[in-house]
Design a protein around this nucleic acid. Structure first.
Lengths: 235, 235
DNA sequence: GACCGTAAGTGGTCTGAGGACTTAACATCA
DNA sequence: TGATGTTAAGTCCTCAGACCACTTACGGTC
């Protein structure tokens, strides 16, 4: 087994075995090198790998620690890779978001929290009053994020957040030919979601959220058509 | 900005800008070091980070390449971190699996594919005939995996697969006090799912899948109770 | 008791060297 | 001509040593 893989396996094993729990501190690098039988370079490449995955954190001058191992935080790390996925993959991810967010929106509607409806109404008031692309994206994220949070599963909130962030890069809301129509449709979709939540109607909330995100998927397909399919290679 | 972060940002930028698409080859390390203004150590730590996230691949003796950037493959990389998440987080993830797999199972039921039902029946015949923990886990994964695949969204298949793999580590099916009762309930759940798919009843399929996974969540809670809550620290 | 400077501990970065693997060009032989 | 084995170039992998930057805690000073 290669040196870096040996180090990687060793570090993961230290966590998986329970030797080091969330927040625990690793021994200093020289000691770990000795223990794992690799050079400092290889050890550092292994720790970087785990840090990228959100499993450990290195703090300059302090030490290397096991992260909180919180699924929401780990999923957030995914944005580094999700942001590079091309359109075809983003559409697959948007279906995931649609399914999860429909569920979370229904759960939020079932919660009977007047404060939530009030907060959401305030966000929509601001959202409907602006035409700035960046502000639209931020308020949209705040709206959906608040709903997911009320849904009660932080993992779902993190996952939908990552996907929403990726979709936002396509900037559907740049002023252009169909800007007015798209913006109006989007605003209406948000109001439908809010109405369902205010009426404490989970089924309607799920339907409204699902329809709203499905609409986004259609816009993405229309605005950024897929590249030509490559000719099949003979092999 | 730190050296490794500079390299990381630079590498990601090369992909995000479209300069390098899926499968493209990066320049040799010395050239990249020059271009990014960092040493080879820092560059290599950056490439390791992106490799851990499934964004790039280094091939010994050949070169460094952009990965296929396929969301299913990228999600698979997640298993490295998900496998270390403690129970409380796993339960949050299992809810994600329940939601997604209910959806995928419904989609599979709507597909009207007799070959699928036949294949699933074969898997269940073998599953019901064994009491070996490892074999149960493998066949269970094959059953649910085949259904998700038929659902049509590879990203959903990958995500549910990663979560299922983590849950499997708890080995609910180790022979023990309640083994017979658990096994029988599980087998019945699988048959209910298959019946819904065979009858092309998406709603029933979603319900059956959801109930089956919810049952797994209950077993996990029961068999591996959460650790004691820590006393709140004064700060 | 509060503040500050110092020193030890620890991760971050750079340089240089040699090894291991892949790939393709080339020579050889049937 | 075609297949095969050899060679060399290209590239990533690993190691070692040195120095820098940051954090933390100790002890002194006011």
């Amino acid at each position: 087994m290669a040196a870096t893989d040996r180090a990687l396996t060793g570090l993961r094993q230290m966590i998986a075995s329970g030797e080091l729990g969330p927040g625990a501190k690793f021994p200093p690098e020289p000691e770990l090198c000795d223990h794992l039988g690799v050079s400092r370079s290889s050890l550092r490449e292994a720790t970087r790998s785990l840090a990228a995955l959100g499993v450990i954190e290195s703090r300059h001058g302090s030490g290397t620690y096991v992260s909180a191992l919180d699924p929401a935080e780990i999923i957030s790390r995914f944005s580094l890779s999700v942001e590079l996925i091309p359109l075809e993959g983003v559409l697959q991810l948007l279906e995931v978001r649609r399914i999860l967010e429909a569920h979370a929106t229904a759960a939020a509607a079932a919660r009977q929290d007047p404060a939530l409806a009030e907060r959401l109404a305030g966000i929509l008031d601001r959202l409907e009053a602006t035409t700035d692309a960046g502000e639209i994206q931020a308020l949209d994220a705040e709206f959906h994020g608040a709903i997911c949070e009320a849904g009660g599963n932080p993992t779902v909130t993190a996952l939908t957040g990552v996907i929403r962030g990726r979709g936002g890069h396509y900037r559907i809301f740049e002023p252009g030919a169909d800007f007015d129509a798209i913006k109006r449709t989007s605003d209406l979709g948000h109001r439908a979601i809010l109405a369902a939540i205010s009426h404490r109607d989970p089924a309607a909330a799920a339907t409204a959220a699902s329809a709203h995100i499905a609409q986004t998927e259609l816009w993405l397909r229309a605005l950024r058509p897929e590249p030509q399919v490559e000719l099949p290679a003979a092999d």
